[in-house]
Each structure stands twice: as structure tokens, then as C-alpha cells.
Design a protein around this nucleic acid. Sequence first.
RNA 1: UCCUCGAUAGCUCAAUUGGCGGAGCGAGCGGCUGUUAACCGCUAGGUUGUAGGUUCAAGUCCUACUCGAGGAGCCA
Length: 447
Amino acid sequence: MPSHVSVSNISNYVGQDIILKGWVYNRTHKGKLAFLLVRDGSGFVQCVAFKGDLQPETFDRITHLPQESSVIITGSVREDQRAPGIPGGYEVGIKDLQIVQAADLDYPMALKDHGPDFALDHRHLWIRMQSQWAILRVRAVVMAATRQWLDENGFVEMSTPILTPAAAEGTTTLFETEYFDEGKAYLAQTGQLYNEANIFAFGKVYCFGPTFRAEKSKTRRHLTEFWMLEPEIAFCDLDQLMDVEEGLITFIAQTVLEKCAAELKFLGRDAVKLENISAPFPRMSYDDAAKHLIDLYEKETDPERKELLKFEWGMDFGAPHETEITKLYDKPVFVYGYPSAVKAFYMEPWPGRPEVCKSVDLLAPEGYGEICGGSERMSDPEKLLARIHKEGLPEEAYKWYLELRKYGSVAHSGFGMGVERVVAWMCGIEHVREAIPFPRTIKRIYP
RNA sequence: UCCUCGAUAGCUCAAUUGGCGGAGCGAGCGGCUGUUAACCGCUAGGUUGUAGGUUCAAGUCCUACUCGAGGAGCCA
């Protein structure tokens, strides 16, 4: 008999005696029959005790076991369609139960819905609940699939610094800290500029880590600390960049479908929505998107809706605009060629149309919106310097960045993917705060 | 920063026109051999976010504040 068995492997032990180590998630009893729903980190399994099979004091212990007590259970595995759990369908007939610790009786997380304030104040306990467990397991699979696809496609992971001397995209949204005698340092809001250095050494790279933005955004799609994947590719134009994005996103969705079937089922996620995510994705120009939005705006009769949909060429999309564009398709859609004025300084201008740049956003369906934002980067040193001056950015801080264009400059492109947004989309949940173990929002840094 | 909404038992919420603060879940005890957030009975559980005001009387009306949520802007 192995030292103990994981719930996730329990189907391999039908008819055998096993030892299970975990925590009591729920307990109920019905006279001479008691049910424990036990979680062990890898899953949730029902354990059943018959009074007649056990010492009277053992059965009494089981019926009085507080929720969240840690236990070691010896019992026999059987298949039973009635058995709840994740994945469910198997249960353990209890032969002996040892209490490691009887939990205090005041465990605050009842097995029901909680308000966001209470749930977030108890995030350290909330993550034990089935819904949160399922979401965070999907997150781990999304992150592993991301790395797997990139590694298998010739990308090299390069860690970019988190403490940085200057901003990539303006200075209003940076977290600031003292850095010894060097003045201010800032928490990175992107690793892109460093990745642009990395590609000249490694060709295809990515960084994958936390990103910090002091934006005072209070929406279901924003965190102040979130995880971002940023691939960057040498000798790559905008069309090739879109090929990379749709290849990666398709692989992530397929991997989640394959590895997280039980989690998605528990979350009630419609698998068809994820099966639809397959390359190629539609590619729409900003101009065409703008035409569609202006058309919708002009046809709208409800004054309130009309105000929300207000749009003219040159504007960036708001959430209602993104939703309208994604409604046209049942899979993610690329929108490319945004006005330069609404995008970052480093983006390559469209040939023959300087007011437009070679940028692309990937918009997810069902209202999840922008999950990737990328562009072809400006490769000409003179044009880049002119743009830095125009934006009023300190030239000295970008000296090294400009130098990259002096020694073998090539067309290159990259994008950023917000992990929590992708996870929220895969899981079909409302808010990105549940897609990260310990979310940081504008009003919350505890626990 | 702006707009909207909210704060009542550990949790989720009720409380009629301003008129005796309730229920379900959770907790404890008891019952029941198939429960799925079980069910049934009993018990315990309250400075109604804070400060002030109006009133015979305030959970309810007024003022200020605190905290939170949704959205806008900005973004992944």
C-alpha cells in the first residue's frame, strides 16, 4: 500500500485500501451513515462511514468533526455515480480516521456565496473553496501551456527587471520607491523595452511575470498587480505577430479543455465556447471597426445607449465598443491599425499613413475584451528619437533603447497578454480578482 | 478623479407610511442507512458602519464622514 494516494489518482485504486491525507470540506450525516467531503489539494472526494463498520467512538468522532479539520483516512475505494466531488464518481469507505487537528469551530467560510468584501478579506481561506480552487487550477494550466507553446516554438524565456529607472508608457501609473542614492525607482509596468534588447541576442524571447500599474481603475478587468506574458520577436511584422498570437491562444484553450475538464464542469463553463477558440481568428482594420461602430451609433435610437456608443474616427475603443465588435464573431478578433495618437510612442507608423500605426489588439468574445495588445516596433533610430522628443520623454533615459536601433536594427514585433483576463475568460467568471491567488486592487492589499 | 448603488446576527438577506429588529445558512445538542450548500426538532447568537441632527418614537428621514461594490476614463 502506498504511503498515501491523491484524490486525482483515486480512480486507479478501485477495490483497494488506501490512505488519504487531507481536510474535511463538508460533513453531513444521516443516522448510522456519515458523509465527509474531503479535499487534499488535488481534488475533492466523498468518504462514507457506516456506524456498524466502525468502533462507536470512531463514528462519533466523524459525525462531530469540525469543517476544515485535517485528517488521515484509511479506507477502500469504490466507484459510485452518486458520489459528489471533483472529479467525483468515486468514494472511500472509511475504515479508520485519524484527526491531525480538529479545526476551531468558528471557521468563517460557509459553503455558500459570500459578498466580495467578506470573501476578499478572507482570501487566505476562500482559496480552499471549490470554485476558487477550480479557477486557480485553470490559471496554473494556462500559465504552463503558455510556457510550453513558447518553448516548443523556439522562444527563450528572459527575465526582465521589476525595478526600473523609467517608464515605458508615461509616468502617471507607476508605483514609485526609493533606490539608495540613485533617486527614484519604479515597479515595472512592462518588460518590453528590455525584451527589445533581448531579441538582438536571442531572436525570439518572452518574459512572464508580475506587472504593476498604479491606475485608479475600478473595473472587473483591472488589478494593480497582474501577470503579463510578453513575447518579442526579431524579423517579424504585424501579420506574423498575429499568427503567433492566434497560435498561442488556440493552444492555451485546447490545453485547458484537455486538462481542466473537471474544473470547467464544476464552474459550469460551456465547453463549446472554448472549442470555438481555434486559429485563424478574424482580422479587422481599425478603419472597418470604426465604420461599424459609427454605423451602430447612428442607428441607435435609445439615448442612453447612444451616449455609450458615441464614436468617431480617432477615438480609442471603450468597453461598449469592444463588446460590439466582438459580437460580430464567436471567436477572438484582431483589430489592427489604430491611430498613433491613442497608442504608445514606440509603434511603427503605417507605410504611407503616418496617422495610423502597426498596432493590434486581440479582443475576446463574451465581453472579456482586450486580452492581448501588441505592435510592430519602430526600427528606425531617427524616427524613434523624433517621437521621443514629441512625447516629451527624457532622451537620456532611453539612450540604451535608441542604441538598439544603431547596431543591426530589424523589423520586430511583440505583444502583452494579461494572464488574469485569459483565465477569467477560460473560466467564464465575472471578475479578474478571482483569477489570481491574492489580488491587489486599488483599495485592497490585505491579506 | 467623476457618476450610481450599498453597509442590519459569523455569512446572505428581510423588516409595510417613521411604530415591539426577523428568516435561511453557519455553530451546539438530538433524530434519521445515500447525503450532494441534505432534511426535521430544540438552543445560543444584535451598540442596525461612525459622528451628529429632526421626532413622543429612527434600521427607516436629514447632514458629514468611513468602508465597499458596479461603471466611466486608462489599460492587459
